[in-house]
Computed example of a mutant assay.
Amino acid sequence: MKVLVTGGAGFIGSNIVDRLIELNHDVAVVDNLSTGRRENLNPGAEFYNVDIVNKEDLTRVFEAFKPEICIHHAAQIDVQRSIKEPDYDADVNIVGTINVLNACRLSGARKIIYASSAAVYGEPEYLPLDENHKVEPISYYGVSKHTPEHYIKIFSQLYGLRYTILRYSNVYGIRQDPMGEGGVIAIFLNKLVKGEVPTIFGDGEQTRDFIYVKDVVEANIAALTRGDGYILNISTNTCISINDLVKKMIEASGRELKPNYGPARKGDIIHSYMDNRRAAEVLGWEPRYGLVEGLRETYEYYSGR
């Protein structure tokens, strides 16, 4: 199968590319390397250094490669940057996705798999969050990840483009950038490897649903052939406080450190975890990695750099 992965040099995208190539798919990667890394690129994939905001260049790549399926992960993922630069956030996440959709249509792609986010839900009215929960984001990032879902549905109605929308909980694992906003686990583990003290924003009692990147990869692989027309939560259906998470990470590192605490950040939700039963039913998928196992693999990755 011919699969084009946008953001395929990034954290989640590169892990998906590796798995696709392992399964003998024909893969192309589109990435402008603004946050993706050349060292993440699988040599078995065709690479195009193209920004999804550049409509003409993007369309040329699609028309040259002619993917059957597009897995769309290129995005602006920094919540705080979305608040400071909402125009940039919208350009990448909304306009960029529209460009991807147009390129799919013009090149004859039959399906798009779109990486959405738990951020679309906003403050939970109940837990666990299921796909029927109201959508009321509290950050521009949440808005810019949700808006493309509407465009995708209408593209499907107008042009027959099939889709599966995957709303991720907090993804962590190998290749996540510890220097960016991408994930608390990557940032904390990187500090622990260096012997530095991590900082928890707020009182640390906020809870999150952390899912290992390899489980997210398998959800995308399942969506290649299943889940048409569905929005699906990709999550563990469990949660842990940041305080307890940091304790587990310190235990995994074998160090004796106490975290610092800083002020809570705007746009952060206090408690969140997502129901994943629909994904289990529709995709035949469920997470296989527990938090301890995932943390151990991730710590080994950062300590082995």
Rank of each mutant, 00 (worst) to 15 (best):
V216G: 05
G284F: 06
G8K: 05
T59Y: 00
I165H: 05
V216F: 00
S235P: 08
G183C: 11
M179K: 14
T236V: 11
H25E: 06
Y121T: 06
F201V: 02
I211K: 10
V100Q: 09
S303K: 15
Y151S: 09
N132Y: 12
T298E: 05
D57E: 15
S116H: 08
E149W: 01
H146F: 15
N54T: 00
R265G: 08
V143D: 04
E205S: 14
T59H: 03
P124K: 00
Y151E: 09
G294I: 06
E85R: 11
Y121D: 02
K145C: 04
D209A: 11
A64K: 12
S144F: 12
R288W: 09
I211L: 11
V120N: 02
I113N: 00
R19K: 15
G284Y: 10
L33Y: 11
D177F: 04
V120W: 04
V29G: 00
M274H: 01
F47P: 03
N132S: 15
H146A: 12
D89A: 13
E297W: 09
Y273W: 13
G13V: 03
I211C: 02
G13H: 02
H73L: 15
Y48K: 00
Y299V: 07
N99H: 09
D268A: 12
P137S: 11
V171G: 08
V217T: 12
V246Q: 01
V246I: 13
A75P: 01
N99S: 07
Q157E: 13
P128Q: 05
K194S: 14
P178E: 13
G160K: 13
N99W: 08
D215G: 07
I187W: 12
N42T: 07
V135S: 01
A74R: 05
A252E: 15
K145N: 06
P67H: 03
D209S: 11
R167N: 03
R208H: 11
D209R: 04
T164P: 04
Y140F: 15
Y140N: 11
V92P: 02
T207I: 13
T147D: 10
K134V: 15
G229C: 11
R60F: 07
K134W: 11
D275H: 07
G195K: 05
H25D: 04
S116R: 06
Q157K: 15
E63I: 07
E123L: 14
S253P: 04
T35V: 12
I71C: 00
E286R: 15
R305F: 11
D78V: 00
E63L: 14
C104Q: 02
R167I: 09
K266Y: 12
M274V: 10
A75K: 02
Y140H: 11
R105K: 15
R81Y: 14
T225D: 13
G96H: 06
F65E: 09
H25S: 07
Y168I: 05
L295N: 05
V100K: 04
Y151H: 12
P137K: 10
N132W: 12
V217N: 04
E131C: 05
Y114Q: 08
P67A: 07
K145V: 06
